[in-house]
């Protein structure tokens, strides 16, 4: 979980920063998308690095899910008889109890998101439009429900990272004593920055700052 999660976090950082290029205008954003496809040429064939990254990401997602499913199955086997009384969380963290279904929500979001902005299947402009046009059309005010879904899913991503990141540090044996509080704070702050960075794009399109 920790290792595959870390790969996905690295991707999210890059992806969030890349998205912010939309504020520099259509040209900048489109040439960035173009650059993603041609980086490394001619030393490597076109799209090679992007394809390798994509394969790595799919592998990380699959392994991440596989770990989550096997942990959930072990948990179910470890407690065959459930408690009759409703159990209130004593640890006071609601976030950790959203990890499993939150992960499923994020997965559904990623599928929609790929159909929307990568393949253009559910995007008004379709596959052949420029990435910039796809984003602007995708988050058009008339499609407010798409934007609402993005916002909800991104908040879920934030919660997921808030627990996930410090949990990864803990699993790797790095979060002891005072450092745990620092790492917890770092995870919360980092998740908030990431989510705000991601959210700025659909919201900017919706309110017409980016058009």
């Amino acid at each position: 979980m920790a290792v595959t999660g870390a790969v996905l976090v690295l991707f999210l950082i890059g992806h969030m920063l890349g998205n912010l290029k939309i504020f520099l205008g259509a040209e900048s954003f489109n040439s960035y998308a173009e650059w993603l496809r041609t980086v490394g040429e001619p030393a490597v064939p076109g799209r090679a690095l992007l394809t390798i990254t994509e394969i790595g990401l799919v592998a990380a997602v699959v392994l991440h899910m596989w770990s989550a499913v096997s942990l959930a199955r072990r948990a179910r086997r470890a407690r065959p008889v459930k408690y009759a009384a409703r159990r209130r969380s004593q640890a006071g963290g609601y976030v950790v109890h959203t990890m499993r279904y939150g992960g499923v929500v994020i997965l559904l979001f990623v599928i929609w998101h790929l159909l929307d902005l990568t393949f253009g299947t559910v995007n008004p402009k379709g596959f052949h439009a420029t990435p910039y046009d796809r984003v602007v059309a995708g988050f058009d005010p008339s499609r407010w429900w798409v934007t609402a879904f993005y916002i909800a899913a991104l908040v879920m991503v934030g919660l997921h990272l808030r627990h996930g990141m410090w949990s990864a540090f803990q699993t790797l044996g790095l979060a002891n004593g005072r450092r745990r509080h620092l790492l917890r704070g770092f995870a919360a702050g980092f998740a908030a920055v990431l989510v705000l960075g991601f959210l700025s794009v659909p919201i900017a399109v919706m309110i017409g700052v980016v058009k």
């Binding site: 942990l71 948990a75 086997r77 004593q90 950790v96 627990h163 699993t171 044996g173 002891n176």
Partner: peptide, 24 residues
Amino acid sequence: GGCTNTGECTAVCPKGISLDVITQ
């Protein structure tokens, strides 16, 4: 089962054993 760092254990532990031991 496997630990997912929920912290419910240390919250109920009558001896207040800290999550630090799991880090160790």
